[in-house]
Amino acid sequence: MDIRSEIVHQFSQVAREQGRRLSPLSDDLELLESGLDSLSMAILVVRLEESLGIDPFTLTDDARFPITFGEFVDFYETSSRQSQ
């Protein structure tokens, strides 16, 4: 599965469910400016684990949540490569 397109799909799905307006998802978009609040982002991580089968946050001790959309995608792609 293409990780980036799944992430894009889940961003818009969660935004729709939570009644939030999503900003255009460019790589340099800061996640805090994406339109999703903390709860939406928390839901997003759960949904991505369901669809991609990975939760990269459980694989690392680094508490830092990615800052930009590009970093977020990269975080998942890297983690997916490592878990294969």
């Binding site: 903390s38 709860l39 982002m41 928390a42 839901i43 991580v45 759960v46 459980t58």
Partner: peptide, 12 residues
Amino acid sequence: TKKNPMTGAMVI
């Protein structure tokens, strides 16, 4: 509960 990096935990 399910551990979550954003909110500590989420409801499943």
